[in-house]
Nucleic acid binder design. Structure first.
Length: 565
RNA sequence: CGGGCUGUGGCGCAGCUUGGUUAGCGCGCCUGCUUUGGGAGCAGGAGGCCGUCGGUUCAAAUCCGACCAGCCCGACCA
């Protein structure tokens, strides 16, 4: 490809509204352009990268027996009503009607469609199956951001395993784990597999593949000693026990005018230190008003709450709170309430604590959890903090880091096959629901993740595996006949041996060409100029700086082929 | 959804407070000449419904209102 004929709109300045490095560089390098919030066009350069990422994914999926499909991106609402997700995913689902007035949705994912297809399988003998496709998803995210890292429209590789039993599912799940490790390694990503929440996908186990990055929105805890790693949505740590001083008597209300926060209350006195307070939060669990209580200095991990109650949860509104408890947030407590109370384990057995009195500007001291709180459920609800003791081995310290989620694999079970009647007959002739797994990788996000972990102040540094071109031939004087001829010959030779070559024949000054080639991150550059040609040589450099050498023009092909292996 | 900010040629910005020539600057783009191993110089030129709608006014990029869009923080997130 000749650069002069290719659409590569590089920008000298950073776009004003891009903050994340991958966002900045993909725009500046002419890989992507935004159409609206969370929606990007792939330009030719971006498309070349996306294609290479997709091809790697395809190869590894095929290697574990995957069969490629292409399912539609517009689904009948009926399909989603059948599994109940029509209501569950209210908000991010785009719904509309066709001319007949039939409800339609844009695909958020494809469990329903593949389970529907699977209903054509009638015998256990036809299992296992592994089906996948690369297809557009649309999720009307409340807050798209950071370029390709969090978008509304994106292409995802999603695969669906179909088995007769849990053992089969386990095998396909492990096969995916292996395939995902190979995929991310080939993409140049140092991925970590972590325990994760299944969210409202349903099912049992789920493992996320994450890449460490400041820009990442997810957080994971890892134990340096035993290797335990989990998303903060699930991570568990050991909390140091606290020695309570006895109080003995009845709980005693006391006036706390104007105090609305844990920190504010802690200033009242030693007896009200944050770890001696009960934090009371009001949530709607399903349709039920529920109080959630934790130690004052602990934070609620909402996903843990949702996962353990198995229902949709949301914070109660201030109006609901006042109506139910008669006080505003800041003075809430669970002493003697008639509503369900779920409590974090760290409060178990605590005595002489301080909490709100459900009367504005009044708190209560001397509260014994077991005696005074009508706890209906004890759960793990708190958010793990950096440095706490590992909940798995009990000895190592957990470190919490930001990560980008690049892949997620789920053991779904039979939720979808049961809802959609995807059954097979077993050996005894009895219908049994197909056991499913679902596995996703976002193509664009993977691209962005590569840029996040592989760039410098000059631009992107693509690994050869996904680089839009492997080598760029930079002609310093394209109007010089000798240079043009040498460039053409090198181009033909390198294309001949199967390399992706970009010939920079633009009539630009050298500085512009060097800067552009570094911005778009081509792994190798051949610099061809009159000065070098006098000695019959060209310069070969590697984008990441490890190589800079002059070599005879006749040895270039052999050298590059050698570098590829 | 709550809070903050921003919308002016392709990109980055000034002008708006205090309304009044032809809306300006840098980069990029086009033409010519010179230059050419790290984002050139000179000369000439093209390109703008100032986000949209409405209002105030003799007069609106500028003041007022509504709306739309985008970004950031938070809530949320398959």
């Amino acid at each position: 490809m000749r650069w002069s004929q290719m659409f590569i709109p590089t920008l000298r300045d950073d776009p004003a509204d891009a903050v994340a490095p991958s966002h900045r560089l993909l725009i500046r390098g002419g890989f992507i352009r935004q159409l609206m919030a969370g929606s990007y066009s792939m330009l030719p350069l971006g498309m070349r990268v996306a294609t290479k990422v997709s091809d790697i994914i395809r190869e590894e999926m095929n290697a574990i027996g995957g069969q490629e499909f292409l399912a539609p991106v517009i689904h009948p609402a009926e399909l989603w009503k059948t599994t109940g997700r029509w209501d569950d995913v209210e908000g991010i689902m785009v719904k509309f009607e066709d001319r007949r007035g039939i409800d339609l949705v844009l695909a958020l994912t494809h469990e329903e469609v593949f389970a529907h297809l699977a209903s054509e399988i009638s015998s256990y003998k036809e299992l296992p199956q592994l089906w996948y496709h690369l297809q557009t998803k649309f999720r009307d995210e409340a807050r798209p951001k950071s370029g390709l890292l969090r978008v509304r429209e994106f292409i995802m590789k999603d695969s669906y395993s179909l088995d007769r039993d849990r053992d089969g599912l386990d095998r396909q799940f492990e096969a995916h784990r292996g395939a995902y490790n190979r995929i991310f390694t080939r993409l140049g990503l140092d991925s970590i597999a972590v325990e994760a929440s299944s969210g409202n996908m349903g099912g049992s186990d789920s493992v996320e593949f994450v890449v460490r990055s400041e820009t990442g929105e997810d957080r994971v805890a890892r134990c340096g000693r035993c290797g335990y790693s989990a998303n903060l949505e699930r991570a568990v740590s050991l909390v140091e026990e606290i020695e309570d001083t006895p109080w003995g008597g009845e709980p005693q209300p006391f006036a706390t005018p104007g105090i609305r926060t844990i920190a504010g209350l802690a200033e009242v006195g030693e007896f009200a230190a944050a770890e001696r307070q009960i934090k009371t939060l009001a949530y709607m669990v399903g349709d039920e008003f529920t109080l959630v209580v934790l130690r004052g200095d602990h934070d609620l991990e909402v996903q843990k709450l949702a996962d353990s109650v198995g229902e949709a949860v949301r914070t109660a509104t201030e109006e609901e709170i006042v109506a139910k408890l008669g006080a505003h947030p800041g003075s809430l407590g669970a002493v003697g309430v008639l509503y369900p109370v779920v409590a974090d384990h760290a409060l178990k057995g605590r005595t002489n604590l301080v909490t709100g009195a459900n009367e504005d500007d009044v708190h209560i001291r001397g509260v014994d959890v077991d005696r005074d709180l009508p706890v209906t459920k004890w759960l793990d609800l708190r958010t793990v903090n950096d440095g706490e003791r590992c909940g798995s081995c009990g000895e190592g310290a957990l470190s919490v880091t930001n990560v980008i989620e690049v892949g997620h694999i789920f053991k779904l079970g039979t939720k979808y096959s049961q809802a959609l009647g995807a059954n097979v007959l077993d050996e005894t002739g009895r219908p049994t629901p197909i056991v499913m797994g679902s596995y996703g990788i976002g193509v664009g996000r993977a691209m962005a993740a590569v840029v996040e972990v592989s760039h410098d102040d000059r631009g992107i540094i693509w690994p050869v595996s996904v680089a839009p071109f492997t080598v760029v031939i930079t002609l310093l004087r394209p109007d010089n006949p000798g240079v043009a001829e040498a460039g053409d010959r090198l181009y033909r030779d390198l294309v001949e041996v199967g390399l992706d070559v970009l010939l920079d024949d633009r009539k630009e000054r050298p500085g512009v060409k060097f800067a552009d080639s570094e911005l778009i991150g081509i792994p190798y550059r051949l610099t061809v100029g009159p000065r070098g040609l006098e000695a019959g040589e060209v310069e070969l450099t590697a984008r990441d700086g490890w190589l800079r050498e002059n070599l005879p023009i006749l040895q270039v092909t052999e050298r590059l082929v050698g570098l590829m292996s």
